[in-house]
Design a protein around this nucleic acid. Structure first.
Lengths: 228, 228
DNA sequence: TAAAAACATTGATCTATATCAATATTATGG
DNA sequence: CCATAATATTGATATAGATCAATGTTTTTA
């Protein structure tokens, strides 16, 4: 069984809003604001008051938990996905993780009280939200497995495949992430990322031109991802 | 911030059933069966058809994902908790993880179609289920952080504290888990568990008598858990 | 209760990967 | 466009923890 599927990049259908009536949609529109974030800006802060859930419209966002200087990236969010659903939990009024923009991003901040109200009122909406939460869990569990059970080559191969497939949707892409950011995502040191990328290039698995990466042998990359 | 909270042992309030009407409760009663499992028996199998969600009434259960021979324990479930909520996801009709009994356990298998029906019908029930899913996520994220960012001493300290606090609810307990099972839980080799337990004993942090473990200095253990 | 199997312990190695240090390259602000 | 900072690269070294191997102990089973 391939480990890759939905490993690092959350790509949920997020069909919950389709379940709302026109009236409910109108209510929700009134109870949200659209905000633009620059590269590097914090969208949600672990521990701060969660007055809203976040719908990412444009850009690329990392979701992570932090304890002091240590951080763990839980997932990357591309447009069309929600952040902060785990703060819907009763008695939990703070964000359980942080989110930050990798690049210029636009998000809608939806009032959490209204969101909760709609869950109570609209069973189909609620069940769609439950779907998304379940998908989130599965994605994070896969990433958990990958980071704990795969060695560095496998983890980096996995990350490159995820980025190619789910973020850039192409085998060749301009990677505006630093080596340090790649390292953080793959759970290893920056130097190790560099050495492994070099090795992948020597083995004709990728073609590196500065920030541009082309996956040259997806099958072999997939094998590294699955086995190592 | 302490990493321990809800790290390995899921201990959700699981108040969702209180939200049901008498009628709905009666319906659910009819649509469930009670099953007893012996030590080691599989309660749910990753990839198999998820026709039900599982409510643990008695015993101790591990929830884990497996790829071939490799396994990753996501959490330990004590009585009063649900397993399989992530299979409520639309279009997902298989278990996304396995569950097995550590000891003789009793569980109720609740028909998933009825469960889904109640979510649609009863908004409060739905929101309680969402609460549980959110708590589950937070617990697994904490465990994810612990296993990836803490060294072996910290991970084992964390595990002992979790077991003491949440499973046995005592500083002294009869541990009917093998060293291999502890190793699996703390994400390390069996030999390493043995060596670290020995070190803990030498440092007067624990008192080991066969299977009986007494945490002798909780504060120091907590410090190891937080720092290492 | 004897034999077999499972589990626990100890010591000796091996290795993946982090860390450290030095240098090269690229980006950025005045 | 230069200066300075940030990032990337390379090599050398250190180490946590796995793996291997051998032995002792407990549990199960026949």
């Amino acid at each position: 069984m391939a480990v890759r599927t939905s490993c690092t990049v959350a790509d949920n259908h997020c069909k919950c809003f389709e379940a709302l009536t026109e009236e409910q949609t109108a209510l929700l529109e009134k109870k949200q604001v659209t905000v633009e974030y620059n590269k590097g800006e914090i969208i949600a802060k672990h521990g701060s008051f969660a007055s809203h859930v976040i719908f990412v419209c444009e850009g690329l966002v990392k979701v992570y938990i932090e304890h002091g200087k240590e951080i763990l990236i839980l997932k990357i969010i591309s447009p069309g996905n929600l952040i902060g659903l785990s703060s819907l939990t009763e008695g939990e009024d703070t964000f359980q993780y942080s989110a930050a923009a990798y690049q210029r991003s636009i998000a809608k901040l939806i009032d959490i009280t209204t969101f909760k109200h709609l869950i109570r009122e609209n069973g189909l909406f609620a069940s769609r939200v439950i779907s998304i939460l379940g998908e989130n869990s599965n994605q994070i569990n896969n990433r958990f497995f990958c980071l704990t059970h795969r060695q560095s080559y496998g983890r980096l191969a996995n990350l490159l495949l995820c980025l190619s497939e789910r973020v850039f949707k192409s085998e060749q892409f301009e990677l505006d992430l630093t080596r340090k950011e790649l390292a953080e995502l793959a759970g290893m040191s920056t130097e190790n990322v560099i050495r492994i990328l070099k090795k992948f290039q020597e083995d004709d698995l990728i073609i590196l031109k500065g920030k541009n990466i082309e996956l040259h042998n997806i099958d072999a990359m997939q094998r590294i991802c699955d086995l190592g």
